[in-house]
């Protein structure tokens, strides 16, 4: 049974000069607890998909179903992590983490306790009263992860959350996130343009095509890789085989002719 399902989702961006079709008839479904990656060139609509699932934007056509009900009717929390941490610089770490409970008016001693436990779990004990400016990039992204997890989201959306970090921090954080998500059995969608990261972290990889954004191909990650932590996946013999396959797929895609992205509005006037 599918947990989250996208059925024929399309999305357009409109401007005065014309419109862009960002997504064209995108359909896929995810099982509960599954970790999938959306991989593709920039501008292929990966982030648009996340924004639609998160309810920040509404698709121009198609349906997004969570447990067979429209996602807009669902009360289930969705966690969204962005490329940058977007911690609020004027709030302390603990206040940043407790933002979700504050918004949903469930702030209490329980959530405070949970916040401190989660901060400990990601290796950040004793920073609660600090301000974000005193933390390094990796630490801040870990705080952002805690801020997302504290709401106990059923679906976690990760929009290139490691791309702004240095390589070492990124590898460490990948391990931490993968282990945490496995422990809490979260359904996760990761958007990335890093093939290695996609293989290392996910169960299934959707390769996306740009102009307009579509799902071009799906790769299943071998079971041996799924059970490893991201750091060790990269050393597994099967890793390179899958990497090469995906590389080839993305490479052929890149060589296809690029069609005009913005459809001029003058076409409409002629009709």
């Amino acid at each position: 049974m599918s947990f989250l399902q996208l059925a024929h989702v399309s999305h357009h961006y409109f401007s005065k000069k014309g419109y862009t079709k960002a997504l064209d008839d995108v359909s896929f479904s995810i099982r509960e607890g599954e970790f999938i990656a959306l991989l593709g060139p920039s501008g292929c609509g990966k982030s648009t998909i996340l924004s639609i699932i998160a309810g920040i934007m509404e698709q121009t056509s198609g349906n997004v179903l969570l447990q067979d009900k429209p996602i807009r009717d669902s009360e289930m929390a969705i966690g969204y992590m962005l490329q940058q941490d977007y911690l609020f610089p004027w709030k302390t770490i603990i206040d940043n983490v407790l933002l979700g409970p504050k918004i949903s008016k469930t702030l209490g001693n329980d959530s405070r306790k949970l916040a401190n436990e989660l901060l400990n779990e990601v290796g950040l004990p004793g920073v609660a009263e600090n301000y974000p400016s005193s933390l390094s990039g990796g630490m801040r992204q870990r705080v952002a992860l805690v801020r997302t997890l504290i709401n106990d989201p059923k679906i976690l959306l990760l929009d290139e959350p490691f791309s702004a970090l240095d390589y070492q921090t990124k590898l460490k954080l990948e391990d931490l996130v993968a282990q945490l998500l496995k422990t809490y059995n979260k359904t996760t969608i990761l958007v990335t343009h890093d093939i290695g990261e996609a293989i290392a972290m996910s169960d299934k990889i959707f390769i996306m095509d740009a102009n307009p954004g579509t799902i071009a191909k799906t790769f299943e990650v071998p079971i041996e890789l799924r059970n490893e932590t991201p750091f060790f996946v990269r050393r597994h013999p099967k890793y390179q085989i899958l990497f090469d396959k995906i590389w080839k797929e993305l490479d052929t895609e890149e060589n296809e002719p690029v069609t005009a992205k913005v459809v001029a509005s003058s076409d409409d006037q002629e009709q």
Partner: peptide
């Protein structure tokens, strides 16, 4: 965006 994803 962060706040909207929390349902603000």
């Amino acid at each position: 965006k962060v706040l909207i994803s929390f349902g603000a």
